[in-house]
Design a protein around this nucleic acid. Sequence first.
DNA 1: ACCTGAACACCGTTCAAGT
DNA 2: ACCTGAACACCGTTCAAGT
Lengths: 221, 221
Amino acid sequence: MARTATPSEDTAVRSGRRTGLERDDVVAAALDLVEREGSAALSMRRLATELDVGTPTIYWHVGSRDELIAEVLRLQSTRLAERAIEGTTPRERVFSAARHIWTSSIEHRSTTSLAHQAGASSLLAHHLEAALVLELEAAGLVGRDAADACRAILMAVGGALVLALRDPSAEYRPDNLWADSEAPIDPETRAALRAEADLEAISAVALHAVVDHYLPPDQVT
Amino acid sequence: MARTATPSEDTAVRSGRRTGLERDDVVAAALDLVEREGSAALSMRRLATELDVGTPTIYWHVGSRDELIAEVLRLQSTRLAERAIEGTTPRERVFSAARHIWTSSIEHRSTTSLAHQAGASSLLAHHLEAALVLELEAAGLVGRDAADACRAILMAVGGALVLALRDPSAEYRPDNLWADSEAPIDPETRAALRAEADLEAISAVALHAVVDHYLPPDQVT
DNA sequence: ACCTGAACACCGTTCAAGT
DNA sequence: ACCTGAACACCGTTCAAGT
């Protein structure tokens, strides 16, 4: 189901040998599984069942779970990089690149969580990050300035993501947390803390500030 | 070893009943275990062995692993809140509160990782967050302004933490990632991306910008 | 080279049973 | 009320053995 059909496979008994399975198929199936059923569903045994092979076969192809995850994130990273950056001014294009990181993280939250949990978010973001760096260079930054601007933008996006991707089913949502808080907080503030936040708008404040700090002003043409 | 001594316990056979163990002991031992051996070491069985009881005993006291983790984070959260905020001007004190979140997250990275993985970072940060909100109110903010300022500051700190707490043993550190990157990036920029970053300094840029955006200027007295 | 069954050493969780 | 041994249904990983 997750594997592409191979000649003489339909009625084959497959009692020991030749599955036609390749490393890329395993990785693609793993990514598919994560996207469909969440990062917790990605177990070696589950994946083997999905591919209709024995568990050790997975190991033969990808080595270990950690390596598999790394490959899954690399695959997703290249897929995400296909999205084109928009805008005409350097500033617009930098914002567009930053926005790509945000939207793709939200759209593929299972994969983002996987990267998050594995401490490998840099792997997942890498190609989008490279695109961002190129736009920063096009805007006139080089060396440390470009690197630091990239990191600052990543922080602004990443910080918003941490808040955005929290499990909303938990009983310790900020919502409940502030309701129970014994701190002498103004009722109006408390209500605002309990209400849902426009994280993207708040993140934009930091993003604009950071871009203003690092980027030279746009040329007027 | 992690449990406080109880009368008539030393030579007791403890063959079924009365351990003198309480919920708080279990939670404290769990926090201790995480701090000592990392978040991965926190398994119900391991913790039971540590406390010299059967595994179901842990369940009897805390219900489930998720509940245990929540309690652990609540405990650590209140401990962290004891740190006093410094500074005289509202602005200084807001920075001090924000800095507390950063430093305590770095100092207790295992617990931070645990919260991170469980998607419960809001639980761990909650008391420090409350302290921050109080300082923001002291600085003249109320309602939505205070809440949004708090979130913006959290993003700035949280974004830096995501970058700071990545596993440095992985072969996909940013370092290696940029070395292998095929993107046409300027050599100088590439070198800067590979070098270690002063994350705290970069984070400070966003932090100052955010505070400037939300806070009224300090009164001159 | 590619794949398997069976095993090892772990998990979280439940439950009848003991005191 | 508090604690246990034993079991269920999972894990990641390895390894001798098959073709």
